[in-house]
Amino acid sequence: MSKVIVTADLCKQCGYCERHCPKEAISFSSDFNANGFKYAVVDDDKCIACGMCYTTCPDGVFEITQ
């Protein structure tokens, strides 16, 4: 299982998670979610499951699984 589950449709493309991820593991999609936002995408190879994205996200996009 991936370290982080992303609920893409909740993302509002604010960029807070990308700014605070210590591993530069977050980028944005090229397509759009249900609300018309480009959504956060996590590179599982770079991710260390630190939870900074969960902590800073205003919209509950992330779940840290381990």
Binding site: C14, C50, G51, T56, C57, P58, D59, G60, Q66
Partner: peptide, 28 residues
């Protein structure tokens, strides 16, 4: 790092604007 899951009491996305601090504060 412990598992982290958005609280179940927030049952739907609250329509604050993108990047609004209210969203973080409600979760806290």
């Amino acid at each position: 790092m412990a598992k982290m899951k958005y609280p179940e009491q927030i049952v739907a996305n609250i329509p604050f604007c993108p990047g609004c601090g209210h969203g973080i504060i409600v979760r806290l």
